[in-house]
Amino acid sequence: MSPNAVPPAPEFALAVTGLGKQFTLHVQGGVVLPVLSGMNLEVAPGECVALNGPSGAGKSSLLRLVYGNYRAQKGSIRVRHRGQVVDVATATPQKILELRRHTLGYVSQFLRVIPRVPAIDVVAEPARAVGMSLAEAEHRAERLLSRLRIPERLWSLPPATFSGGEQQRINLARGFVVDFPVLLLDEPTAALDADNRRTVMALIAEAKGRGAALLGIFHDAEVREAVADRVIAMRPPAMAA
């Protein structure tokens, strides 16, 4: 499944090859749920690829597999990381954490944070983790929070009490505070109003502009068409067979 609609990309940022995944539910008598099989895709630097398909097609699972959140059973998930290629499917936990710190960004639909940490610190944390100074990390965090229209009075509060849309934007800010070379977006605009949707589209465009490879799920067709260079159609594996 090599890209044919874009100019030749000599180097992939992310390459998924022959990826297979199924869940075995031991608690339910060993029921096996197929999720993905024989999945291939590549994302080049500066490219945004959208995953499309009905629910149950394995879109979110694919993002989680790439992020190392799910364990792959077959195939490889190669990520270009600091000049090397790392296969997430076989990497050690330490390597995956290093990858997540420097290379792989992930904006999920749900925010999971420590209860007492203020929003500004939640957003700045990934930047601190890559070694940015406190001042610079906070500056970047503030800029993103402003752009995503989080009122300044909320910055010092823990996001646990925020509305769904606010939490989503905190999550987005966290994902964009570091210039990750590979960014995974799981319905980043799901709970956002039109203004913030436009901000997210702008952020994605900027990320592409600096050469990031993006792989995302966008339910909103308008957003998808605006940001995606390619769309990969996915179908539930039972139908695919």
Binding site: F23, R64, G68, N69, Y70, R71, P93, I96, L97
Partner: peptide
């Protein structure tokens, strides 16, 4: 394994 992997998968 990785904490979130063990808990989520």
């Amino acid at each position: 394994g990785l904490t979130d992997q063990v808990l989520d998968d």
